[in-house]
Design a protein around this nucleic acid. Structure first.
Length: 1131
RNA sequence: GCCGGAGUGGCGGAAUGGUCUACGCGCACGACUCAAAAUCGUGUGGGCGCAAGCCCUUGUGGGUUCAAGUCCCACCUCCGGCACCA
């Protein structure tokens, strides 16, 4: 027999397979497809370490198994080569990134090939290849076309080391994920992708992914961070220097109805009730409106001055702007409520006023004349109005105010959104609308627009403007790390302005503080210190007295006193008395005897009894102590729902918590009845919390300790008409009355610009005349120019900006002078869609042909690192859904099944890294032990998704196993007069290995093959059985399996041979071992027929364990066929 | 703090509510050898015992069950995600 020479064998077969092209994927309609995908690597300069291939080996095993089962398999590989790491590597090594990438890819590819992976290299892709990134740019253009890519000047995260802006996903805490540098906020021009438009679907559709690991889905849910709450408006009161109140002019927009319709009467009455002057003229000919007629009517009949706020609805919006153009004098404000659409907008419906109105509007002048501008948009209207209004708003340099009108197009009889838009107010977002009555101040984030406006030199509402300004500047300079580490609350009260709590109608102060985040919710909160930890901290610091509005409610769910859902609740008012010892720091507690309750002294208040009297009486009756004196009431009440065993009733108890102290030890005898009810015990102060086991009583104790913030569920108090409601009910009722439902997400829009060289150029041209002009599709790809200096500038400009030849272009629209966009795309762009390109890598006309997409999509199995849960995997799902919406792909989700690889750590248990000098190189392992050994070991190490330390010692086991398989070829015999058991075991092994590969349980698959080999060595094996076994081995050790397979006389490759089938008949034993137990303990075993009857088994078993049955009474016999028989005996 | 996941020999780890510790590493002893390595064989959770055997054991404490590593409750520890997100 030849020695097992892995080097020879592996080199030989790798060459032969490549030549024969057995791993080539074809669109073969006759076969079911299987698309198996690895997260493609970024080809780093360091090459692979043994941890990297683990996932690739797993998909390799999986895909080989699928191929043998008759699937047409797509298992491709490519390179994610754009981005910072590649560029930084290039700079460090003074090598052009393109050169560096080429070199690194070559090295990576060699290493991967050496492991014997079954990739179809003819489909190799590279994100830096212009033929590839042409389509990345194409997708960007489509996103732009659909309004999902926009320019913004908002401050973004800037990494000073990498010298580029970053997205939220690129951060680890407050540091750059790449280099660990703390990021700063920097305002700059950015391209942003509107991923937030897909937030809801990205969240919802996780439900379509049962084959994703829960922790990945959970991470995504966390990241998207949906919370449902309410927006509530708090009107503001402040005094302006010049006194007069604004007056309102309402211009309606119906051309079919008179102005008596819809919201106008309501708005008029409401404003007048507040003491404002309101004009709402009837506009002539609403059926067939004419501009001149309508505008003249307004000019002739209405008073317009610098205090006027004009509100124009629908066509009235246009009339309003025309009026303003004509009078050409400043007014206080202009509010456009769903203004009418310019007929030139594609998709706009034909209207009778199109021809009678002039649609050229001087937006610049309007903006100049109006003190403030707001554009309101009803989101129910959708396209094309929403994008049109967004455009109008941007021309007027304001952001669009979006929301749901009561009725479409603001046709409701009441439209509160309009009211809040025209009166001074602050809007807060809260998930605790139920605590509105406890909102005793507001807090704005330092970046809140209202603050920005108020500290402007032209405004003088704030009395302490300079102080506020200082604070805002200081907050903006505070690094994120300072905010993180030092969570001490800081802030400043805004003097001269007050808000009105819409529920209590009380005036409350307004603060600015940096514990409120600008980019979450509305950037403003209502503070409820009694029910929010952070607000409480702040209130403590500023000496704001708190107001409790939720009284704790605890519902007993477990134990014998758990609430019985079938019984009604019976209310009872009572007291809960905390009694302090006369000298020690101990408190009097009761443990109940019939129920597992440990609490304070409690009791029901009798009619006409004073609670304090009740408490004193109960203390005497229940504990005998007679000298209790009230220290103080602890405030409010606590509530509990539970079942009383003694009374057989559900109780809803309402307790007034009171604190007492005993003057001395005077004590009387406790009655027999009370003695039987409970024991009184003195408990040390620091052990009380542990001793007490009822939720409501713990809340009482918290009050004793002064921990008054309560965030749990409860009953409303101090909340007017809502008193007594359960807080969940109150939430929706209060929202209905004082606010509106609102859903908020933590997910931010995707900052898509990088100020670096090595990325896909963003295919946009900036023209002085036409503004932003997308590069025409036919001009794609916009190639990244070759340059000498690709180092980042650090100025917020990409190095591309310096290449004049490339930057200066003709505008595709007007042919005038224009400049290219010089920002590049982030690293995650190419990886957001690359999996589609493997399906059709050569296609020149389309990203992927419909036919091929239909055949291969979706990816059946996707394997990669868990660190991509909230980056790549969210981005890719977003782009995929977008491509679905524009009809390019046919599946809602790109990846059906996702499995994350568990890290291979170094032998010392740390991360494998050059820095620690603990890297194991796969080249060395392959050289010394062979690729097959490496493969078998990595799959055998443990559960695939677990992180496990590499152990070269342990790896020897894998090598030994293969050597034993090798030697087994000598032991094969042709006759089958062998141990019949080996055939049985073989069939079980076929079943186990197949199922385990499917389930990614490679370690147990290998273990079962080891068991088979052990048995075969002992019992012998036929040539045919050995051949079948080699097929099982083939996915794991492809080289050895192939060599042995061909050596046995086979002509075709084992890797395209059919996977063996198992015969059910071999899975069942006729003779089984049954365990005999006495009292649950194993006392014997017996070999019996699998079909043995219970009686028969019992009598056999009785004999076997007679020793243990002697003198015992058998109460019951448990018989589990084929497994066990248990004699249950009496004690 | 909140949300996920996990705690089993000396080590990596097996185990549809039914004999806990499969398989592998390591270790001990034996065979082969002058010897060593390699290979093969036997053994290997802990305690008591000469032995037959007995008792204990899946992070801790309770519970359900004839029977719990597995199900339920409380707690402890570790890992991962989010974190001043209202």
């Amino acid at each position: 027999m030849k020695e097992y020479d892995h080097k020879k064998i592996e080199a030989k077969w790798q060459k032969i397979w490549e030549k024969a092209g057995i791993y080539k994927s074809r669109e073969n309609a006759k076969k079911p497809k299987k698309y198996v995908l690895d997260m493609f690597p970024y080809p780093s300069g360091d090459g692979l370490h043994v941890g990297h291939p683990k996932g690739y080996i797993a998909t390799d095993v999986f895909s080989r198994h699928a191929r043998m089962q008759g699937h047409e398999v797509l298992h491709p590989m490519g390179w994610d080569a754009f981005g910072l790491p590649a560029e930084n590597f290039a700079i460090k090594n003074k090598m052009h990134p393109r050169k560096a990438v080429e070199r690194n890819i070559k090295r990576f590819k060699e290493q991967l090939k050496m492991i014997g992976l079954d990739y179809d290299w003819s489909r190799e892709i590279n994100t830096t290849d212009p033929d590839f990134y042409k389509w990345t740019q194409w997708i960007f253009l489509k996103l732009y076309e659909k309004g999902l890519a926009y320019e913004s000047y908002e401050p973004i995260n800037w990494c000073p080391t990498c010298q580029t802006g970053l997205s939220n996903e690129d951060l680890e805490g407050n540091a750059c994920e790449r280099c660990g540098t703390i990021v700063e906020k920097r305002p700059m021009r950015q391209w942003i992708l509107k991923i937030t438009d897909y937030a809801e679907r990205l969240l919802e559709d996780l439900a379509l992914l049962p084959q994703w690991q829960e922790h990945i889905k959970e991470s995504q849910r966390n990241w998207i961070g949906k919370s449902e709450g309410a927006e509530i408006d708090f009107p503001l009161e402040f005094q302006t220097k010049d006194g007069p109140k604004p007056n309102y002019l309402i211009l309606h927009g119906w051309y079919k109805e008179s102005s008596s319709g819809a919201f106008i009467p309501w708005l008029k009455t409401t404003l007048m009730a507040k003491g404002f002057d309101v004009q709402a003229p009837d506009l002539p000919n609403p059926e067939t409106p004419m501009e001149v007629e309508q505008v003249n009517k307004v000019l002739e009949n209405c008073t317009i001055n610098e205090h006027t706020i004009i509100i124009g609805h629908s066509l009235g919006g246009t009339v309003a702007m025309k009026v303003l153009e004509k009078i050409n004098k400043p007014i206080a404000g202009l509010v456009l409520v769903a203004p009418a659409m310019n007929p030139s907008v594609p998709g706009a419906k034909s209207r009778p006023f199109w021809k009678t109105f002039d649609w050229n509007i001087d937006y610049k002048r309007i903006k100049r004349l109006a003190g403030f501008v707001a554009v309101l948009c009803d989101l129910q209207e959708g396209e094309p109005r929403v994008p049109y209004l967004r455009d109008i708003a941007s021309k007027l340099e304001v952001s669009l105010t979006e929301g749901d009108a009561r009725e479409r197009h603001f046709f409701g009889r009441e439209e509160p959104m309009i009211l809040s838009a025209i009166t001074a107010h602050l809007t807060v977002f809260t998930t605790r609308a139920d605590t509105l009555y406890g909102a005793i101040y507001l807090v704005l984030s330092p970046e809140h627009p209202w603050i920005t406006l108020a500290i402007d030199k032209n405004h003088d509402v704030l009395k302490n403007k300079e102080e506020v300004k200082k604070y805002v500047v200081k907050a903006s300079k505070k690094t994120e790390i300072e905010r993180q580490e030092n969570k001490d609350k800081t802030g400043i009260k805004l003097e001269g302005i007050e808000a009105i709590n819409p529920a209590t109608r009380e005036k409350i102060p307004v603060y600015v503080a940096d514990y409120v985040l600008a980019n979450y919710g509305t950037g403003a909160i209502m503070a409820v210190p009694a029910h929010d930890e952070r607000d409480f901290e702040f209130a403590k610091k500023f000496d704001i007295p708190i107001k409790e509005v939720i009284e704790p409610l605890s519902i007993q769910m477990t134990d014998t006193d758990a609430l019985r859902p079938d019984l009604p609740l019976e209310d009872r008012n009572g007291v809960a008395a905390v009694v302090k010892h006369w000298e020690k720091n101990e408190y009097l507690c009761l443990s109940w005897k019939q129920q597992p309750i440990r609490a304070f002294v409690t009791g029901g208040i009798e009619p006409q009894e004073d609670p304090i009297e009740t408490a004193k009486r109960e203390i005497e009756e229940e504990t005998g102590y007679m000298s209790a004196e009230l220290v103080k009431p602890l405030g409010g009440r606590v509530h509990a729902q539970f079942y009383t065993v003694a009374k057989g009733k559900n109780r809803f108890g309402h307790y007034i918590p009171l604190l007492f102290k005993l003057k001395d030890s005077t004590r009387q005898e406790v009655s027999e009845y009370e003695k039987n009810q409970h024991d009184a015990t003195w408990v040390k102060a620091d052990e009380v919390a542990k001793f007490i086991n009822r939720g409501d009583m713990l809340e009482v104790w918290n009050r004793v300790k002064g921990e008054v913030v309560y965030t749990g569920k409860g009953i409303l108090a101090n909340s007017g008409e809502f008193d007594g409601l359960d807080n969940e009910q109150a939430k929706s009722k209060i929202t209905e009355v004082f606010g509106r439902k609102k859903t908020t997400f933590k997910l931010r829009d995707w900052v898509f610009s990088r100020q670096r060289y090595w990325g896909e150029p963003i295919p946009i041209i900036h023209c002085g005349k036409c503004g932003i002009v997308p590069v025409p599709e036919k001009d794609l790809p916009v190639k990244l120019p070759d340059v000498k200096n690709y180092k980042p500038t650090g100025t917020g400009e990409s190095p591309l900006a310096a290449i004049e030849k490339w930057v200066n272009v003709k505008c595709p629209k007007c042919k005038g002078k224009a400049k290219r966009e010089t920002n590049t795309m982030p690293q995650w762009a190419g990886s957001s869609w690359y999996y589609l390109r493997y399906m059709d890598p050569e296609n020149k006309k389309a990203l992927v042909s419909a036919k091929k997409e239909k055949y291969w999509a979706p990816v059946d199995l996707y394997v990669g690192g868990a660190e991509h849960a909230t980056r790549h995997l969210i981005y890719a799902r977003f782009w995929h859904k977008f491509l679905f919406d524009i009809g390019l792909v046919t599946t809602l989700e790109p990846f059906t099944r996702l499995i994350s690889v568990g890290l291979i750590q170094a032998e010392d248990g740390r991360k494998m890294s050059k820095r620690y000098g603990n890297v194991i190189n796969p080249d060395d392992i392959v050289e010394k032990y062979g690729a097959d050994t490496l493969r078998v070991y990595e799959m055998f190490m443990g559960p695939f998704t677990d992180a496990i330390a590499w152990n070269t010692n342990s790896m020897i086991g894998a090598r030994r196993f293969l050597e034993r398989v090798w030697r087994l070829q000598e032991k094969c015999r042709t006759s089958d007069v062998l141990h019949g058991d080996i055939e049985k075991l073989l069939h079980r092994t076929i079943k186990k290995v197949g199922e385990d590969i499917e389930a990614f349980k490679f370690n147990t698959a290998i273990s079962s093959m080891m068991i088979f080999v052990n048995a075969a060595e002992k019992g012998g094996i036929t040539t045919q059985q050995y051949g079948t076994f080699l097929k099982l081995l083939a996915p794991f050790a492809p080289h050895m399996a192939e060599d042995l397979w061909v050596a046995s006389g086979e002509k075709k490759s084992v890797h395209i041979s059919p996977w063996p089938l198992y015969d059910d008949a071999h899975l069942h034993d006729e003779i089984v071992t049954m365990v005999v137990q006495v009292g649950g303990k194993v006392r014997g075993q017996m070999q019996v027929s699998a079909s043995i009857a219970e009686d028969e088994a019992r009598s056999q078993a009785e004999k076997l364990v007679s020793k243990w049955l002697e003198g015992k009474r058998v109460v019951k016999v448990v018989f589990v066929p084929k497994r066990l028989i248990n004699f249950v005996i009496a004690d």
